[in-house]
Design a protein around this nucleic acid. Structure first.
Lengths: 378, 378
DNA sequence: GTTCCTTCCAAAACCGGTTTCGGCAAGGGG
DNA sequence: CCCCTTGCCGAAACCGGTTTTGGAAGGAAC
């Protein structure tokens, strides 16, 4: 985009000049090299001078220009985040919180955040390469990790620091923050089992994402811990939208021995169960219990409100920024790994089974003849 | 944050060196000054040389380092966006789309996006000042404009380019993109009037925001155009959450001559009407018609689904980035003003009035005795 | 009183670009 | 043939920082 010359023709805005490091140096009758070393705690500066410099810089309101530093140090003091905009994304409603967390922690340490978006796998890789090549960021936050994640491959071979929001298959050299979704799924099963459910199904989320594998494992762990046997027939996968969830629920309800409760790895899919239940004359929370995961706002407005697990997305952003900055500063990634639990939101979509699995099967068959979806406009 | 010296102690990662302008110059046996001027279309470079340079730079994959350019030019080639995280924000669910729009247009022109957040009015001003002082961005996008907006004052006096998402009281020197919410409100009134409603109420959004003034004007214009008189009693204001909306709806329904239809300036408030209606035994879309504005996803999951106006947030982001870059390049702000209309989503929350205002008043009074809110968990 | 360290800062080079300045060579006019 | 432009590029300064180098001053050891 060759424009510099043309841009030069328009009058530069008369912004008043910033205070530079030379100004500070002059005021103290020192050289700018000395001031720089003083501010950066070089050991060959006397304490007296260091203090004088610090005080004067403070008084004059001097703030180094990070991109001026960057040209010598190679560090922009900027974190990179590339959002994927094509895919389903349960995190979308929380993006604002996430950014708030990241930027708060970043700016507290004098860093900033550079955001880009990609609409496909390929453009994701291209965007990352461009940002790396142009040094737009010193490191990257990678949300929504896959079991095998190409972004990680790219950053690893480019020797660019990164931190994962989520875990991944090959941990080597990875720093991460994650919510223990597997514990949530386990607790959901235990909660339902405690209410008296004996056939508890599971509808997993996006295939390939690392969280899906973990949440499935958590579901199985819950069954074991509750003394219930696992039945692969009670499982569905790859449901991330309401439509997916409705389809999966329908299929599970049509089983000869349908589940009286469903655990969903993803809230949006759980909301799909409402449609499947309604069109069969079933009441969520009675004939069919549902527990979701994510805490999307829509859940609170569903009827009945969806019991789910809430994730503190803002805190995730904070921790990720913290970990990434540490990583960029050279900390060992093995020491930069944190996990936390999601918090259960007890609402009204689950309860003791109003009917047994056999009775439920009968209800579903009875409704089967006049089966129709309610024409909901989206 | 004095850390440079310490950072120096950790081994620099062995990233392979970028190709610099000097590399290109050497390859062509030119000086870097010449290469720079060639790439930037200076008129004192022959066409032949310009083409040679362009080709060689392309071949070597040379990309100038924007922060290296910035130190001389004062331009970071970066757009700034400070999000407010405290306030209610109907745009939250669309943030992802908005960012996609902004970053797509920005990166198409070789620019990037720097994001920060603020949790209060004061921190907003402080954050803007910091970003300006540190030259983190060459200009700013200001979403959610107020009638009188302090951010505009700040940027104006600092002579920093900006573009508004929305309009504002004092237009001087402002570039903007906006959705004509006033037209939507007018059309909503006309639609309801066309269905036979004669008493149409209006629940406005956040006081102080510029959109609220405009949407109110649109509502009044709709009444006039429909040949209906305006009745200030039928208006409420400052409703931005479901709770606000529920309260406002309740008050309007308790009137001696209640409205049979309500136009809401904000979807979330419109969703509050559902609760107010339900607790009085009224069915939305029959005894009480509701039309919202924003197109929040929750609206599609409400029962019945909310008729509302959808905003193409992604496109807004694109246009705003485009306008801002033009503004930074020196274009006259008066030429950088665009507006578009929102698109009606016809769903099921509105319809011909099932009862007259008098009958509605009777129904409300009848329900008044056993009035209670349904205990919804949020 | 040398010699040898230390301590601490000045001076200068450097990072990767942009912009200014000046001069050479070719071409045109007288 | 000389002078004056004009076209075109090299050389060098510059932007605001960081890092390296080198040396002066002071103290300790001999």
């Amino acid at each position: 985009m060759p424009t510099a010359y043309l841009d030069n023709l328009v009058p530069k805005s008369p912004r008043k000049r910033r205070v530079t490091i030379a100004d500070v140096a002059d005021a103290l009758d020192l050289t700018k090299g000395t001031v720089s070393r003083a501010l950066n705690n070089y050991p060959d500066i006397s304490d007296r001078t260091r203090k004088r410099v610090a005080k004067q810089a403070e008084r004059m309101g001097y703030r180094p220009l990070s991109h001026a530093q960057a040209i010598r140090t190679g560090r922009t003091k900027s974190l990179g985040l590339v959002l994927q905009t094509n895919a389903h994304d349960a995190q979308r409603p929380f993006l604002s919180d996430f950014l708030a967390g990241v930027t708060q922690e970043a700016s507290a340490q004098g860093w900033s955040l550079t955001v880009a978006t990609a609409h496909s796998q390929a453009s994701m890789q291209a965007t990352l390469e461009r940002l790396i090549n142009e040094h737009k960021a010193d490191g990257f936050i990678l949300p929504r990790t896959m079991v095998h994640d190409e972004r990680i491959d790219l950053l690893r071979t480019a020797h660019v620091p990164f931190v994962l929001y989520g875990r991944t298959g090959d941990d080597t050299d990875c720093a991460w923050f994650d919510i223990l979704g597997e514990n949530a799924m386990r607790d959901a099963v235990l909660r339902l089992a405690g209410m008296g459910h004996r056939r508890i199904g599971f509808v997993n989320g996006g295939a390939g994402f690392n969280y899906a594998a973990l949440r499935h494992a958590g579901y199985l762990a819950g069954l074991t811990q509750a003394g219930l046997g696992a039945d692969p027939q009670l499982e569905a996968a790859d449901a991330v939208t309401a439509e997916d969830g409705e389809r999966a629920t329908a299929r599970l309800l049509e089983l000869a021995a349908p589940p009286t409760a469903l655990v969903f790895a993803v809230d949006m899919a759980a909301l799909g169960a409402y449609g499947a239940a309604a069109s069969r004359g079933l009441t969520i929370g009675r004939e069919l219990s549902v527990i979701g995961y994510d805490g999307v706002p829509e859940g609170a407005y569903a009827t009945p409100p969806l019991t789910t697990f809430n994730v503190d997305t803002r805190r995730a952003g904070e921790r990720l920024a913290h970990l990434l900055i540490a990583r960029i500063r050279g900390a060992d990634p093995a020491t930069l790994r944190e996990c936390e639990n999601a918090r259960l939101l007890e609402r009204a979509s689950d309860g003791p089974p109003a009917v047994t699995s056999e009775e439920l099967a009968r209800l579903v068959r009875a409704a089967g003849n006049h089966d129709e979806t309610n024409g909901r406009t989206r």
